[in-house]
Design a protein around this nucleic acid. Structure first.
Lengths: 168, 168
DNA sequence: AATATCTTTCAAATATTATTGAAAGTTTAG
DNA sequence: CTAAACTTTCAATAATATTTGAAAGATATT
């Protein structure tokens, strides 16, 4: 396979994966492009390479920086901004876990906690089923949250070694 | 909070969470409704409760059954089909992990493996960066895949105990 | 201060995805 | 066999999400 073909296939695979995980296709594609790029790229280059508009490129890069996955690189004597991705995939994974925990898990836990305070007779069938469902969900979500919180505090090798031992 | 309000809030929270995880809002809502419902519901009841069309209800229920999260319940002397959700949230989580592993992780690993076979000089800067990125991603994805594969083979308590020990 | 270079914004356009509803299909009962 | 009861399909429609591009905003240069 030729470089350009492989590159396109990688970008498109990453894009598809992204969109099934709540990340926009373009965001995943820009990330993919930067991941395999040996040097930082300007907005101009990203636009040209992925054939996307200036506005889209700008917003997408902004989002990626918001997720802590992409960084600006400034060059002396050059007014353009260049962008480079974090190349350590374990760091990338940790960063994504961290952000999604904050953005999605925490608010859901808060709502679940609230919902358990439902009024009404505890022996009402519906109420009982409701509180049970919410309590169970909360318990599993909390455990997952706990595990993820710890996972992101370990480095890749420590975690992997521990998991290997765990699942021996 | 009154039951109906709590119920709506739960359904809507689950729906929002679903849509940020690549599951359609309606699918998550139907799942939420069945999760808190003490008995199986007919398509008719689901349509009425969530105010969705017959077609939508049918397709969504079908999808949920495809994910192994919802089951048919037939009643003697009744031609209607009733639907009930798996209430054990740990089983639900395992089922989702299992399906996503099969539907998303496995195909991506196959593509990554393919992409490493890129032609060209190994010392070309671009090629080198490409193969490195792909190799690193593959390694992290494989480890995650391994961990998830083992996780779904344990029961909730065994896993949680092990994790607690791990992160002591 | 005027111009050039680059970045940001955002309303409008486009593309994608989800939903509806009526018609067709299926199964059971009489 | 025919009707009734229910389920499934799918083309049309609606809703949502993404993308564009031109204008406005910055910031540096002359």
């Amino acid at each position: 396979m030729k470089y350009n073909l492989a590159k396109d296939k990688f970008i498109q695979t990453w894009g598809t994966l992204g969109s099934s995980w709540g990340i926009s296709r373009t965001m995943a594609q820009v990330h993919a492009l930067l991941l395999i790029s040996p040097e930082a790229l300007s907005a101009e280059e990203i636009m040209a390479d992925l054939k996307i508009s200036r506005g889209n490129a700008n917003m997408t890069i902004r989002d990626l920086m918001g997720w802590g996955l992409v960084f600006k690189e400034l060059r002396a004597g050059d007014r353009k901004e260049y962008f480079i991705a974090e190349k350590d995939i374990w760091k990338v994974a940790k960063q994504i876990i961290k952000e999604r925990r904050k953005r999605e898990i925490e608010p859901v836990l808060a709502v679940l906690e609230e919902l358990k305070k439902i009024e009404g007779a505890k022996d009402d069938k519906k109420n009982k089923a409701f509180v049970e469902a919410v309590t169970n969900i909360e318990s599993v979500v909390e455990k997952a949250d706990f595990a993820l919180d710890r996972a992101i505090k370990l480095d890749e090798n420590a975690l992997v070694n521990a998991l290997f031992k765990l699942f021996k």
